[in-house]
Design a protein around this nucleic acid. Sequence first.
DNA 1: GTTCCCCTACTCGGATACACTTTGTCCGAGTATGATCGG
DNA 2: CCGATCATACTCGGACAAAGTGTATCCGAGTAGGGGAAC
Lengths: 142, 142
Amino acid sequence: MKLSKTSMQAALAMAFLAEQASDQFIQARQVGVHLGVPTDSALKVLQALARHGLIQSQLGRSGGYRLSRPADLITIAQVVEAVRGPIQGRAHLSTSDNKLTREIDILQGLCDKAAITLRAEFDRLTVADLRRTAPVSACVNS
Amino acid sequence: MKLSKTSMQAALAMAFLAEQASDQFIQARQVGVHLGVPTDSALKVLQALARHGLIQSQLGRSGGYRLSRPADLITIAQVVEAVRGPIQGRAHLSTSDNKLTREIDILQGLCDKAAITLRAEFDRLTVADLRRTAPVSACVNS
DNA sequence: GTTCCCCTACTCGGATACACTTTGTCCGAGTATGATCGG
DNA sequence: CCGATCATACTCGGACAAAGTGTATCCGAGTAGGGGAAC
């Protein structure tokens, strides 16, 4: 399984916001500097996260972004789904007039099941876990 | 999780070869017709499967392809890895000079773990299972 | 009848063009804060 | 001293170009089997 660049940026941005005071708004510019990406790119990610309610945005002169709830209540699965859409199984093949529907259905079912397993895996890790210094394997394993 | 078009074609081609007599060579043309794709496309898939030893190829006038071992000894994971490369976790982000290495490592570990889980899921289903008429959920669940 | 040669049908492997997804960048519009100006 | 107005700094949302990945198609080269001709 691979995490796209955008997903990584989203997770790292969330970790960055988690470091700040909970009542302070952080500007997209600062997030971009921290991630080493242009402000526009950071903005895209932050906007997606805000649309899904993971962070709050403040308009105006002293605006910015902050977490909408404690970091340990936000899972990586939620972050990834905010920027990549729902984690779900898909079997890419035009279900043409062939009689292969049975095999395709079986493979589709396999994809669905794998997606559920995958999402559960990503749900075990929270944004707060990204801040811990100790190896996180135990958390994922538990 | 999603299965690419190529992966689906590979799995369906394997299921098709599993239907044939075990000592009979099937031409790429026939596989293509069965899948509803051009012969060239089927050829690409079959060549990849042959390179990884999942099927045997016979050159010459009456050549073709056949399974190299019983269908119940070939898992979907092996088929997918033959055409898509190994199933492994990757965190797409340039590990620049930032001090984000800890967070990136944690996310990379999560990807690796997810990939292992995913591969195990795909290893539970064999090519022979694609031929069964009953729903295969039980197999995947067990 | 036997042997040699050629012809055909197929696979092999790379190369190339196309399509789709992902990524990066830009622009106009809207909003809240602070400063300024007039009463 | 107080309130209205303007300038500023930020977000919002869409649109668009660029890059990467996956997909489809084509071509020349090589190989095994069968048919035909010569002996």
